[in-house]
C-alpha cells in the first residue's frame, strides 16, 4: 500500500506541475499574447500523464480501500490547478493509513 501511495504521490505531483504549465499555456494562447506553443507542447503530455494519474489513483483506492465517491473525488481533484497539490497532501495525511512498523516481536 505504501508503494501505491508513493506512485500516486509522484504522478500527482507531476500532473499538478503539468497542469500549471498548461494553465499558463492557456493564458498565453487565448490571452493577448496569442501564443499556442506551450499548449501544443504540454497538452499531449498532460493527457497521457493524466491517464497514469487515473491508474495510480485507482490502484491506491482499491488497496486502501476507499469508498467509490472518494475515488472519483480524488480523480477529479487532479484536474484542478493548485487544488491538486492540496488534494495530494490531504490524501497522504488523512486517507491512507500509516505503514505498520515492520518489526514487532
Amino acid at each position: 500500500m505504501q508503494g501505491a501511495l508513493t506512485r500516486y504521490r509522484i504522478i500527482a505531483w507531476i500532473v499538478g506541475v503539468c497542469l500549471l504549465a498548461l494553465t499558463v499555456g492557456m493564458v498565453l494562447k487565448y490571452g493577448p499574447a496569442d501564443d499556442p506553443t506551450v499548449v501544443e507542447t504540454v497538452g499531449q503530455l498532460h493527457g497521457f500523464l493524466y491517464m497514469f494519474y487515473l491508474a495510480a489513483t485507482f490502484d491506491l483506492s482499491r488497496r486502501v480501500p476507499w469508498p467509490f465517491k472518494r475515488m472519483l473525488l480524488v480523480m477529479l481533484a487532479g484536474t484542478i490547478p493548485f487544488l491538486s497539490f492540496w488534494a495530494e497532501r490531504h490524501v497522504s495525511r488523512h486517507w491512507v493509513p500509516e505503514a505498520a512498523p515492520a518489526l514487532v516481536e
Partner: peptide, 16 residues
C-alpha cells in the same frame, strides 16, 4: 495537427 493526439486520448478515457 495537435488534435490527432487528443483524438486517441479521449477514447482511452472513455474506456477507463
Amino acid at each position: 495537427a495537435i488534435s490527432w493526439g487528443y483524438m486517441f486520448q479521449w477514447p482511452v478515457f472513455g474506456g477507463f
